[in-house]
């Protein structure tokens, strides 16, 4: 506990329900920014839930086209999953490095995160291109439409995340670890971790449940 001075007070009424505190003034900008971004992330997750709902409804409507079990390659999905998981870890390392203002570990962590994200995107793009080349594009069946829009939407988020990541590296290079840059870095880390959470749902629901015979 950092706030040892307030520890006794917190134990007595941890959620500040019964106390009317004299208002301490607006929260620090760091908290306001991150909280606002957290609300955005949750609304993004709600948007993804609509794609998941559409996929759940349409996953059986193959219109004579391929079923999930026939087109999913579990080995590729496993590699993608490990890439994204490790990139989440290195992103965490980079944000620790940013907090202690260590440039070397920051750049190293962000570079590894970027490379892992690009590997993920490359595998996903190859999978999509392969499916389209075999005639199983998004217009083939309702199932494939739902599949491409759900997984593609996640892929677009990862692409945007990589652009943001490169922007953050450039900003630290040009401006250093200023307070506003650190706030942006914190939001980026939240975004990247949230993408990984969505990917957990994607690989479980789409690829693993979908490849059951």
């Amino acid at each position: 506990m950092a706030m040892t001075a307030t520890a006794d007070h917190a134990r007595a009424d941890p959620h500040h329900i019964g106390v009317v505190i004299e208002h301490p003034g607006p929260a620090p900008k760091r908290i306001v920014t991150a909280y606002g971004f957290w609300i955005f992330l949750l609304s993004d997750i709600v948007m993804f839930s609509c794609f998941f709902a559409a996929y759940a409804v349409l996953s059986g409507q193959t219109a004579g086209g391929p079923k999930g079990a026939e087109i999913f390659e579990q080995r590729n999905v496993a590699i993608e999953t490990v890439c994204l998981l490790l990139s989440s870890f290195t992103c965490g390392m980079a944000s620790i490095a940013a907090d202690v203002r260590n440039r070397f570990w920051f750049y190293l962590g962000m570079t590894v995160t970027c490379v892992l994200g690009l590997i993920f995107l490359a595998i996903e793009f190859r999978e999509f291109a392969d499916l389209v080349a075999r005639g199983y594009g998004p217009s083939r069946s309702a199932f494939l439409t739902a599949f491409f829009s759900l997984v593609g939407c996640h892929g677009l988020h990862v692409s945007a995340g990589i652009l943001w990541l490169l922007t953050m590296m450039a900003q630290v290079l040009a401006k250093g670890f200023r307070a506003d840059i650190l706030r942006r870095m914190m939001c980026f880390a939240l975004f990247w971790h949230a993408l990984d959470i969505i990917w957990v749902a994607v690989f479980s629901v789409v690829y693993l449940l979908g490849s059951a015979p």
């Binding site: 001075a5 301490p24 620090p28 908290i31 971004f37 957290w38 202690v100 307070a179 914190m186 880390a189």
Partner: peptide, 23 residues
């Protein structure tokens, strides 16, 4: 730095932010 006040002031934690721990 004004943005460092969260280290000492009695405030909530931002999402993604940890209690102050060692590296």
């Amino acid at each position: 730095m004004s943005d460092e006040t969260h280290l000492t002031a009695h405030h909530d934690l931002a999402p993604g932010e940890e209690e102050q721990l060692s590296v």
